[in-house]
Simulated assay, not measured.
Amino acid sequence: MQQRLLQSVERLARLAQRDAGLPAIQRALGEELVRVVGVDQAHVIVLSGGHPAYGVVVSDLDGAAGGASASSEYVLRREDGTDALRWVADAGQAVTIPDARVAGTLPLQLVKTYGLRTAAVLPLHAGDTVRAVVLLGSRSEARAWDAAELHAASALSDLAGTAIALRDARLAAAIDPLTGCLNHGAMRERLAEEIARARRQGTPLAVTILDLDDFKHVNDTYGHPTGDALLRHVAEALRAEYRSFDQVARYGGDEFVVILPNVKGPRADIAAARALRVLREIHITRPDGGVEGITVSCGVAEWVEPEGPAELLERADQALRGSKAAGKDGLVRAPTPLP
């Protein structure tokens, strides 16, 4: 195991030096854990809002360390109570699980889907924060977890944590300082990741572009501080409305983009309509004590192969312009492009 561990350390150290996306880091760590520890499967599950949310699982196809492996991704449903994943995320300490079938020990979704019998769960630290949890799983009831295996898994997880911390730092530099949303460049990077994910998994993806109607009137009438406060309020309302794994970004000026993974058809329209509804509840307080509401125009587009981020955003932007031309305060869906 020592030789395999040294080789894995070298590969993960190189990964930390590259501008790797989060799914690539999760997948690389899973592959190294399967190779070094010799487990049936290794899950690397990123946290969102303190909860385990997005998982990548790497499975050993040959049943032998160093053999062929396969990976897939999943979104973990949030369940009531505190299972081992959440406990490790909160406590920052590893646990071993002799029987994963005991109710409430691990998410039922994972136990059933991957046939887990025994498991070990470790924290993945990025800087001072637990950024993900690592689940080493076995379908065998006799699988034991010795200290050397867990030490090796922890060392590899720390290296992956370094790669994630570097990525987080790059993204932090790309946050819009006024609204706290992703800025334009970071939004395009995230959209490229989501398109790659949708392409690999054959899952849908939609984007919404929202533009505040007559925002210039707000700045001209009430001043730029009021306009800035309005933009912050809009950003907060959008983040509160959408799912934890949806992404809200400031596209520029008074335009916002919402990236909606695993959404298509009427659900995309419903998601956009929710934004219009919640933003109509925002009001500006006038100097005379009265209030003035706002309206928003919206364009919705679903990703189709072989589009990249630029083409998908352009179709959503065309739909937005259609909404403006139709009288504002509404949404327009982009037509599916001809093959």
Rank of each mutant, 00 (worst) to 15 (best):
Q2A: 11
V9Y: 00
I25Y: 06
Q26S: 08
Q26L: 15
R27A: 14
E31R: 15
R35E: 10
V37H: 03
V39T: 14
V46F: 12
G49Q: 13
P52M: 09
Y54S: 05
Y54H: 11
V57S: 02
S59R: 10
L61G: 03
A70W: 01
Y74L: 14
R77N: 08
T82F: 04
A84K: 01
D90M: 13
P107V: 03
T113P: 00
R117F: 15
L124M: 13
G127R: 12
V134R: 05
S138P: 09
E141S: 14
L150C: 15
D158Q: 15
A165T: 07
A169Q: 08
R170V: 04
A172P: 04
I175C: 09
L178E: 10
L182T: 02
A186S: 11
R188P: 11
E189G: 14
E194H: 05
E194I: 00
A198R: 03
Q201I: 01
T203P: 01
P204V: 10
V218I: 13
G223W: 08
P225F: 10
D228Q: 06
D228K: 01
E236I: 02
R239N: 07
R243C: 03
R243Y: 05
D246L: 07
R250H: 14
G253M: 12
L260C: 08
V263T: 15
A268T: 04
D269G: 04
R274A: 01
L276C: 04
E281K: 06
I282N: 02
I294E: 02
T295I: 01
S297G: 14
P309N: 12
P309T: 13
A310H: 02
E311D: 04
D317V: 08
Q318E: 13
S323F: 00
K324S: 08
D329S: 03
V332M: 06
V332C: 03
